[in-house]
């Protein structure tokens, strides 16, 4: 699997896109999606919610387990991916693209996120 170079990554396996006009997109990595197995239910924050870096803001349920969704950054949610709510399997099939989860207007410059190469070595050493 390859983690796109243009994204940044958290140790909780979320990805964050480069900001466009102060707004970034958040999703989970393909590595995380593969570990979860088939995602069957996605609970996302509501538009307008404030999320905080490193704190839970939703959950992802798979056949075998439920996992918390952590926000990689602090800010205000501006949009959620209704397609992924309706069809959670998108998380498995397109984690880095159409399986994105929500967009956030950044309150702070993201801290402590990893580059693709750093994330790669993080998951291979874990």
């Amino acid at each position: 699997m390859s983690n796109p170079e243009n994204l940044r990554y958290s140790k909780e396996h979320e990805w964050l896109s480069a900001s466009e006009g102060g707004v970034s997109t958040v999703g989970i990595t393909q590595h995380a999606a593969d570990a979860l197995g088939d995602v069957v239910y996605v609970q996302l924050p509501d538009v307008g919610d404030t999320v905080a870096a490193g704190e839970t803001c939703g959950e992802l349920e798979s056949t075998k387990s439920v996992s918390d969704l952590y926000s990689p950054v602090s800010g205000e949610v501006t949009e959620i991916n209704q397609d992924v709510v309706d069809d959670p399997a998108l998380v498995n099939s397109a984690a880095f693209t159409s399986g994105w989860l929500f967009k956030v207007r950044l309150a702070d410059e993201p801290q402590d996120l990893l580059s693709a190469a750093e994330y790669e070595s993080f998951i291979t050493s874990a």
């Binding site: 197995g37 088939d38 056949t63 075998k64 399997a89 498995n92």
Partner: peptide, 8 residues
């Protein structure tokens, strides 16, 4: 083996 691809 839990699954080989998609358990669904």
């Amino acid at each position: 083996p839990l699954r080989y691809g998609s358990e669904r």
